[in-house]
Amino acid sequence: MIEVRGLSKRYGPIVAVDGLSFDVRPGVVTGFLGPNGAGKSTTMRMVLGLDAPDAGEARIGGRRYRDLRWPLREVGALLEARTFHPGRSGRDHLRALAASNGLPRSRVEEVLGLVGLAEVAGRRAGRFSLGMGQRLGIAAALLGDPEVLLLDEPVNGLDPAGIRWVRDLLRSLAAQGRAVLVSSHLIGEIARTADHVVVIGRGRLLADTSVAELSARSPSLEEAFFELTDGSAEYRGTLGSEGRTS
């Protein structure tokens, strides 16, 4: 369970996140949608204690992130940018993280097998393709077998088989009773993966509802998304905005 309450963050004059509140409940996949620059990644970094909010707070199972006893056993996270050193092998990267939370080395081999990197894990991670890098990030998120998962754009760089694998993985994790928050630019992918959806624009909450309910409002989830975020997109080409002003 993730509870976000009144979270705000500004970077100089730019308000990235503005009084955002929502819950990520266990047992369901919650999609996190919003145009580029809407504040999704900033929100995730604040939940993880990486960026300090200017106001509000985020709690995981009732605790602030910095008060977690074994963070990796409680929360697994995949961030949008790479979070591994290019000179270290995938296996050594995971072993270092495992050591930090008292996890056995055998668990490293398990997650490597789970994400399909067992045979290339000895290679320096800097030589990994985008998709392999994403798989390493997912392996790190799964390392501590956490009850809460946050994944920022997990299907970035994955091929169709990889995308389907992530979809099935996220659904099975939720089915095991875990709380899963996943952001994606691919609305169709969220429509197929998520049960619940949180939509933000310019750092503010636009919708917090079930995928079924939101889809029912419009011909599709994509249409519903554009109706919600119209006027709150940070970067939009002229052509795109004309095509959507109806």
Binding site: L79, A81, R82, T83, F84, P86
Partner: peptide
């Protein structure tokens, strides 16, 4: 490298 975020999340 961005490793700092993995380190501080752990």
């Amino acid at each position: 490298s961005g490793m700092i975020r993995a380190t501080l999340a752990a």
